[in-house]
Design a protein around this nucleic acid. Structure first.
Length: 630
DNA sequence: ATAGGGTTAG
């Protein structure tokens, strides 16, 4: 009997052509390896069944690799079934490849099952499963397997170490990390660039920045990833200036920044509110022709939002061709943080209209926007709408509703809502309640809410300050003092307040009563002049939250040199007339500064944009975009 | 013959 000629499989040297009764003529190569036959099965598998192709181990490897690369789980399962019936089914290498295919295609359970059923496991079997677990954040399981394989006497290689280090870093297990580091050295893998970068990342994640830096410096071979690991670490740790410094060094060293690099840099600019620097790096990215994929684009949207240019946020958002849910959430957050409640809601409705599935974070943005804009009914409506999308509200959504009801003045309703919540209220819930009590000056409920926060989160200084302020503004100065004393006695420290202004390429930072700036004299003179001017048109220093035992004169004095006022005076001295002024602050703005800023914006006819930890305040013509609601 | 490290929203 004559056998049909074989079809050439890609990267095989044989060249023969296929002709048979099958409705297919041509070559099986990398382009049609996963093509379906009319039967619904994979064409290549049908061809094997019809003996049109003589399969070898290599062919199966090619099919599985293709399924893995393209995340084709269904096709992979078909090929797997076929492979089990083949004469290669006992090959460990092939079993490994199949297992890896399942792990990469999202069926880690199946990968784990196959691993369990293997009669013979080699180092690669372990490594692949460890990698699978490390990539799905199941770090504990990954490390358990790593320990097991070492116990079995299998010697890990640079691939194993890379994934094991990622897992140790992921669960911040310094001890495991150090152990693996030792094993890397013992196995002679420490000069491998993958291992080196993973080591830098691991130490950084375990908060051992000094060691991460030393390791990085000592790397025999560096690549983009090594740089990215350290740059991302600085950004995570809030040391954006170091991220920027490394970025320049990286470029000077001839390394090409990647999506990862830009993403970390934009994140750093976002938390520093460094608009000019961010714009500069954005331009650099465009110049290098780096594509605007969602990951980077999302960080850019966030960066422009947090650095104060909502217009640029929207521009980038509109440019993004492939938006994902994070893109929408970033844009919604940007609107919400700028107090643009209606825009947030409009964009959310647009998202629904184009059929994009919102997630829990989407709803959180929308609820926060409603509460900050005072849209009570809308907020309650959207809370209910979550059910329609089969989304379970978590504690953050309940906090948002308490905030919504509380800000709108429905304090009793908020309290009832807390009592009826299906989940246990946390400190954050009562903090929202406490904040509402401050706004609406409800001392009794405020004290009750504060007590709950003290119980649930004794280390937070926020509620003490809030409660003390509530007492002070009700004239209960002894109670105000008692709460402050409680705070000092329990050793809770207030985060020191600071404000900063970006002018050109430098950042000027101020703390209260700052006496360190080269222009300190001019700054003070400037502020005193402004203060006297605005007092004439109605500004009254709000001293209610200043320590009660100092006299009125001194209480006013203390207020006058809050960091944001110094920053404002400085910015007025150093920026052109008529241009907007942008100030960032690391805690929430106080009532007195907020009031003073409104008067100054009218007096000097300038737009002042103040970013505090919560949101943006746009002061213009004597009023603020938050409508005194923050 | 099979495999790897670094990134985003609240």
């Amino acid at each position: 009997m004559k056998r049909p000629p074989q079809i050439p499989i890609f990267h095989r040297s044989t060249t023969s052509y296929f002709h048979s009764a099958l409705p297919f003529s041509g070559v099986i190569d990398e382009n049609n390896l996963l093509t379906k036959a009319p039967s619904g099965n994979l064409l290549v598998l049908d061809l094997i069944d019809r003996r049109a192709i003589e399969p070898d181990a290599r062919l199966y490897v090619d099919i599985f690799k293709r399924c893995t690369d393209q995340r084709k789980l269904k096709e992979g399962r078909m090929a797997h079934a076929h492979f089990l019936a083949s004469r290669f089914s006992h090959y460990v290498v092939l079993q490994n490849t199949v297992m890896n295919m399942y792990a990469k295609c999202g069926d880690v359970e199946m990968a784990r099952k196959l691993f369990g059923e293997m009669t013979e496991r080699d180092m690669v079997s372990y490594t692949m499963l460890i990698t699978g677990y490390s990539q799905t954040s199941e770090f504990k399981e990954a490390l358990r397997l790593y320990v097991e394989m070492v116990k079995m006497g299998l010697r890990p290689n640079e691939f194993t170490f890379g994934s094991a280090l990622k897992s140790a870093g992921g669960m911040q297990s310094e001890a495991m990390g150090r152990g693996i580091h030792g094993a890397c050295v013992k196995c002679g893998c420490e000069d491998n660039v993958y291992v080196g970068s993973a080591l830098v990342d691991m130490y950084a994640r375990c908060n051992k920045m000094a060691e991460a830096e030393i390791l990085f410096e000592g790397l025999k071979i560096k690549n983009e990833v090594s740089w990215n690991a350290l740059i991302a670490a600085y950004t995570r740790g809030g040391e954006g200036h170091n991220s920027m410094k490394l970025f320049s060094e990286m470029k000077r060293g001839g390394f090409r920044p990647t999506h990862f690099t830009y993403s970390s840099i934009f994140a750093a600019c976002a938390s520093n509110g460094a608009l000019e620097q961010g714009k500069w790096v954005h331009a650099d990215m465009v110049k290098l022709g780096v594509q605007l994929i969602a990951f980077v684009g999302n960080t850019l949207v966030d960066m422009y939002g947090k650095a104060g240019s909502i217009e640029d946020s929207k521009k980038v958002f509109d440019q993004l061709e492939k938006k994902d849910v994070v893109s929408w959430n970033s844009m919604l957050t940007a609107y919400a943080q700028h107090g643009l409640g209606q825009e947030t809601i409009d964009l959310f409705e647009e998202m629904r209209a184009v059929g994009f599935q919102p997630d829990e974070i989407t709803f959180l943005c929308v609820l926060n926007a409603c509460s900050h804009t005072g849209l009570l009914d809308k907020g309650l409506y959207y809370f209910e709408l979550m059910k329609k999308y089969k989304l379970e509200p978590d504690i953050t959504h309940y906090v948002a509703i308490v905030d919504l009801l509380g800000r709108a003045g429905h304090l009793e309703r908020a309290e009832r809502f807390i009592k009826e919540m299906p989940i246990q209220p946390t400190a954050a819930v009562w903090k929202a309640m406490l904040g509402a009590c401050r706004i609406h000056k409800n001392m009794e409920l405020g004290a009750y809410a504060a007590e709950r926060v003290f119980e649930l989160d004794p280390h937070d200084s926020g509620p003490h300050m809030l409660l003390s302020n509530i007492y002070a503004s009700a004239g209960r100065l002894n109670d105000a003092a008692r709460v402050r004393k409680m705070m000092t006695e329990s050793g809770i420290k207030k985060e020191p307040a600071c404000s900063w202004v970006e002018i050109g390429n430098s950042v000027h930072l101020f703390v209260a009563n700052d006496d360190n700036h080269p222009q300190r004299k001019e700054i003070r003179v400037m502020w005193e002049k402004l203060r006297d001017e605005i007092k004439k048109v109605g500004y009254v220093p709000d001293t209610s939250h200043v320590l009660w035992y100092v006299d009125q004169q001194e209480r006013e004095e203390r207020l006058q040199y809050h960091s944001e006022k110094l920053a404002l005076a400085f910015a007025l001295l150093n920026t052109p007339k008529g241009t907007p002024i942008s100030i960032k602050k690391n805690i929430r703005v106080c009532g007195d500064c907020h009031s003073a800023f409104k008067f100054v914006s009218k007096l000097v006819n300038r737009e002042i944009i103040l970013r505090d930890t919560n949101r943006f305040h746009h002061f213009r013509h004597g009023s603020c975009s938050c409508r005194d609601y923050w």
